[in-house]
Simulated assay, not measured.
Amino acid sequence: MRETGWMMRLLGPTEIRILADKLDLRPTKKLGQNFVIDGGTVRRIVRAADLSPEDVVIEVGPGLGSLTLALLPSARHVVAVEIDPVLATQLPLTVGERGLGDKLTVVAADAMRVSLADLGGYTPTALVANLPYNVAVPVVLHLLEALPSLEKGLVMVQSEVADRLAAGPGSKVYGVPSVKAAWYADVRRAGPVGRTVFWPVPNVDSGLVSLVRRDPPATKVSREEVFAVIDAAFAQRRKTLRAALSSWAGSPPAAEEALRGAGVDPSARGEQLDIHAFARIAEHKPEPAASPNR
């Protein structure tokens, strides 16, 4: 008989250890493997994700299936992207034992390279994941770009990363991740997560981050051109934008010209600007000076 709703039998510490022993699993820092062993935490994540019965969820790094099992009753389908082939093979078995195998697709792939064509014909509308700490930011940015169907997301990341993703202009931790994420979505902190809900226990705290898709800034230039300005502005974040953008623009005077054209004070610094200001600067990049005829 199929288990439904919160009656789903989730994975606790004992089940996680039994599965790990069965698979001879030794969690690795290289893959950022810290498995959630607390049912209350995964239920909290699913509640915060605010899923509808029509949502197709993409989950990155499902591991042994702690969060997957909590997601399945709340979504139409879950597409789990797992880079570890042993875990990718085991997950359908774990889910199948609970009668929900028809609601799960496992993709054995690197989430940094996955595209819509890899997802078994499903079009994800929500990202919900306990992301590997070492690749959390690039994975989020890649999926928001590669999967424009994503309308929302709820991800668990290292606490400091959560702060950076959700930071606004003027914050000490506002930087490249904050601005680039803001190109795609409204981003906010959605609560803390303690260390003891994981096995093995990490040496850092975690945090939940909520993302709600929005239109990017209206601009005449490409996302890549805007991101090039962001990268340049924060590569030397202690410098004024006139100095920090000199290589990008071709010279300090050219950088000042672009900044003034965009309505930005050349003595400002990158952490003072929002995504719209960076888009305006990209639009005003001066044309390269023509080479004199010999």
Rank of each mutant, 00 (worst) to 15 (best):
M1D: 15
T4D: 04
M7H: 07
G12N: 06
K22W: 07
P27Y: 13
K30S: 09
V46S: 06
V46K: 02
D50M: 09
S52Y: 08
T68W: 00
L71Y: 07
L71M: 06
S74G: 01
V79K: 10
V79P: 01
V79L: 08
A80F: 01
V81R: 01
L87T: 08
T89H: 04
R98V: 11
D102A: 15
K103A: 15
V106L: 03
A108P: 00
A109I: 01
L116I: 00
Y122K: 04
T125E: 07
L127I: 14
A129W: 04
V135L: 04
H142R: 02
L154E: 08
M156Y: 00
Q158N: 03
V161G: 06
R164H: 10
P169M: 01
V173N: 05
Y174M: 05
A181N: 05
P202D: 14
G207T: 10
V209Y: 14
R213M: 03
V221F: 01
E225A: 15
A228K: 06
V229N: 11
Q236D: 02
R238M: 02
P253I: 08
E257N: 04
L259E: 06
R260K: 14
R260C: 06
A262T: 06
G263C: 05
A268S: 13
G270E: 09
G270M: 13
Q272L: 09
A277P: 13
E287Q: 13
A289L: 15
